Amino acid sequence: MTTSPGPAPSAGPEPMAGGAPSAPDPADQLARLGRSWTWIMGAAVATLVPGILALVWPDVTLHVLAVLIGLYLLVIGVFRFVAVFAREEAGERLPGLLLAVLCVLGGVLCLRNPLQTIAALSLIVGAVWLVSGIFSLYTAVATRNLPHRGAVMAVGILGIVAGIVVLALPSESAQALTRLLGLWLVLLGAAEAAVALSWRSTLRRAGVKGSRDETGTAAP
């Protein structure tokens, strides 16, 4: 899951006193990318794709499922790491950074031992979803002037429920676990897509580069 970016800043590099533009700051570039609605949509697609694959391919082996989930967690970890820089206050970045590390760690554990038990795989995914949901819900409640608070709150609640369900209802077979994880991935991905579209609408109303997002990519 992807947390919501902060208010849309002005686009373009800040000029120096002498009139020449300053050198691009990597952190600023990551912040601009993390605030882009297309980046949030990319995280949604990264969640939807493995969910759809799991639903249309329910007879996948536990080995393949572990690899699929491991890659998903690694990719989501990268999206969350970039989204951390979208937070304007440095103190707000630590929870997101810890969550990105948790996602990457979970992905590494899945890929390092793909022949692990169903219970271990459920524990890893359930714990990541639960912590991620709590963080998203906290962001929605604590962040002031959040333009799409309801959508972010829905993503957080959905993540918490998904984590609890996976942890509390251990599957007895790889097929049952595949269907369960596939269903939750599709639901989470759809909710994140709604957040991305809401953020796109907010950027357009704010007049950020007219009809362009924060990275300068023309919106379709």
Rank of each mutant, 00 (worst) to 15 (best):
A8D: 05
A11K: 04
M16E: 11
G18N: 15
G18F: 02
G19Q: 04
A20P: 03
P21A: 09
A23T: 12
D25A: 06
D25S: 15
D28L: 11
Q29C: 12
S36M: 03
W37L: 04
T38C: 03
T38P: 02
W39N: 01
I40V: 15
I40A: 15
I40P: 00
M41P: 01
G42Y: 08
A44V: 09
T47V: 09
T47P: 01
G51C: 11
L53C: 11
A54G: 10
W57I: 10
T61G: 10
L62T: 12
H63D: 14
L65I: 13
L65S: 13
A66G: 04
L68D: 07
G70P: 00
G70A: 06
G70K: 00
G70S: 05
L71I: 14
L73Y: 00
I76V: 14
V78R: 00
R80F: 01
A83H: 12
V84D: 03
A86C: 11
R87V: 04
E88W: 07
G91Y: 03
L97G: 13
L99F: 10
A100H: 02
L102H: 09
C103W: 14
G106V: 14
G107F: 08
V108E: 03
V108W: 10
V108S: 12
R112T: 07
Q116S: 13
S122A: 14
V125P: 03
A127G: 05
V128M: 05
W129M: 15
G133L: 08
F135Y: 04
Y138L: 07
V141R: 14
V141N: 07
R144D: 14
R144P: 04
R144V: 13
N145E: 09
L146Q: 11
L146R: 03
G150E: 10
A151V: 06
V152C: 06
A154L: 13
A154I: 04
G156L: 03
I157R: 01
L158T: 12
V161L: 12
A162T: 13
L169H: 09
P170Y: 07
P170G: 04
S171W: 07
E172G: 15
A176P: 00
L181C: 15
L185F: 15
V186R: 14
L188V: 13
G189N: 04
A190N: 04
A190R: 00
A190G: 09
A190M: 13
A191K: 00
E192V: 15
A193M: 15
A196V: 12
L197G: 09
L197Y: 11
R204H: 03
R205D: 08
R205F: 03
A206D: 08
K209L: 15
K209Q: 14
R212D: 08
D213K: 01
G216D: 02
A218N: 02
A218Q: 09
A219G: 02
P220H: 06
P220C: 08
